[in-house]
Design a protein around this nucleic acid. Sequence first.
DNA 1: GTGGAGGCTGTTTTT
DNA 2: CAGCCTCCAC
Length: 787
Amino acid sequence: MTVTTDFLNQLNPSQRRAVEHFCGPLLVVAGAGSGKTRALTYRIANLILNNRVDPENILAVTFTNKAAREMKERVERLFAEQEALARHGKPLQALSEYEQIQLRSYVYKTFIKHLWIGTFHALCSRILRFDIEKYQSEAGHRWTKTFSIFDESDAQSLVKSIVVSKMNLDDRAFNPRSVRFAISNAKNQGYDAAEYEQANQTFKGRTIAEVYRYYQAGLAENNALDFDDLIRLPVQLFRQNSQVLNYWHRRFRHILVDEYQDTNRTQYDLLRLLTTNGQAGRFDDWENRSVFVVGDADQSIYSFRAADFTILMGFQNDFGDGLPDDDTRTLVKLEENYRSTSNILDVANYLIENNTERIDKILRATRGEGETIACYRADDEVAEAEYVVGQIRSLEFDHPELSWGDCAILYRANAQSRALEEVLTRYSIPYRVVGGLRFYDRREIKDVLAYLRLVANPADSVSLKRVINTPRRGIGKTTIDNLEKAAQELGVPLWEIISDETSAKTLAGRSGKAVVGFAKMVQSWQDKVDSATASEIVQDVLADTSYLETLQARGTEDDLERGQNIQELYNAVLQFEEENSEDASLLAFLANASLNSDLEDSKNEGNEVSLMTLHASKGLEFPVVFLVGLEQGLFPSNRSLDDAAAIEEERRLCYVGLTRAQDRLFISHARLRRLYGSDRTPAMPSIFLGELPPDYIQTNIATALPERWTKTQRQAKLSQTRQSSDRPGTHADDWTVGEPVSHPAFGEGKVTHIFGAGNKICLAIHFPGLGKKIIDPKVSTLERVSS
DNA sequence: GTGGAGGCTGTTTTT
DNA sequence: CAGCCTCCAC
């Protein structure tokens, strides 16, 4: 392929600067719709085509599978287009179908196949399949490369069994759900049980630390990892084994990270280790090496999962040159929005200005004003749905160029989809619920997967217990208890007891025959796990267990659907084998099933209205967006109402929703809402509604949007806040680390860090009881507290 | 050991 | 309104 810079002409100057950056660190602050995926994909292409980087040396990390898939596709298309020009002197579309296929397969084999593009979890599970056997935890636990990946419900039931059976705790005070949550959080911040205990010296803290210890032992006994360990283990392994780290450090010379504001401590540690090879302090050996992160603090919506956007704020000090914005060479801001009309953008900008935790950033519109934003107050959730559907139908009529696929309905919680679905069905409008009840979370699918996990990893007692009596084969609770007790006493996995004919028969008594039969059946699958394909094993499992027949025999509508789902799973296995011919092993399939839980996505690209949560909408865009359910207690959610920082996160979520819209934006709320089977309860309009600029918004009734500003007044106010950078307290010299300050919403705290320099700064402030916050003194007024 | 009835609880977002 | 758990009758 010839060297070319033509494709770089499609970029604006900032994008181009980001894309052409070669070695060293770079932070790209990328507002909504500013072309960050474009920057990422073009950068990958540029590294390979112009800087002659071997695709094997590139690692691109995303946050969701969807994003990874999209990035892969876009890189592939970019290469194919370049290759078409180079080879045939014509654009890709001008080639015959045959030539296009040829080209694509060449591009795939030469470039795409060798790139590592995936989520943190997928990346780490790949690393662990190579190296996990070199790892031993502080507590002495080890894993083998056939490890299972426990999903959230597996993890929770393990916690539960520890809380209830092992430690005899009151499961009201130590609710397994919240204990699991505490452990997960600890892990994501990089704490092991001892460190967690150190930081939480209360009865509760010590007890949770104890559960944490048992829980880790339990995972190890099952030869299993939870989602958090998938990332934590590589970090620990890298710290204890410099050879392993060195291998991966040399392998990944150019690292790209999408949605950097969503990384948590452990993920950051991983990136840092990979980049610096474990070197502490300032890192400066950037020869043939780069770390390129892209993010937007205003779109940080995953702090409930321990994401920490102060990591993004700290990049310049961590890796970069730490110079002020105007002088730095390690920061690029993408501030031009190509997606939305200026009306939509203004409304979004106006809303997000209500947050105090921000960095100064302007998002400039490049498109015209467009339509005004519609806000509708409905009587109840059904009327709201009818309004949405009515609008879709009239758009259909007035704008034939629009189709159903151009419309998205966004909501805060999955449960809200029901009313919408009912009305959409009533009017025969095709729709698709994105990521609702996940395919791999269905009971029948989990059953089959549990069989497969047991085949791959006999130590997985959680899976074993799940399937030993599904379908019913007369092995009851008492029997399992007996077998389990024996396993515990001998310190071996449950499977060892069950698969030993003599022990099984003795211990299981009346059910002995059934247990032995079950064990022999599983054994027969295990015997061919290395020679047979994944799909063959699935076939065997289904045939030998008569799973489908059992469903058929019951024959309810649900059972029929379950049967179809299993059929679907089988298809998924076949498809997986086709797409991953290099490694189509059972293990690879299982990892894929655990980590890539959004199965339906790829095929249903038809012309349908999309329904999804706001979280699921991040990174997407639609010509027409409906944002529904703007009510206090729903959005912002009940749990955030008394927590300033949580409200800010909800506001960012709202900002994400608004900025998904390209041309038309509809907002709605209901006066009465029925949720969780209760009676219809009155609902107040969301505070966010009051924070939108009324003159941009058309309402169906004179709603209580407070204070009417004219557009000019608004703009004056906006630029006033922006120009306030000369105010006292906005310059780096105004502050010193360690000094006590007071914030209007968070109260008193201590400055722990100053980001940036000159008058473009952010302060990290620790507020007792609230934790660390990043504050921009230009946005919120800080006062010095005299001590 | 099975299966159903009935009671209780918890409901935000996801890899 | 689920989904889960417990309890009870077979």
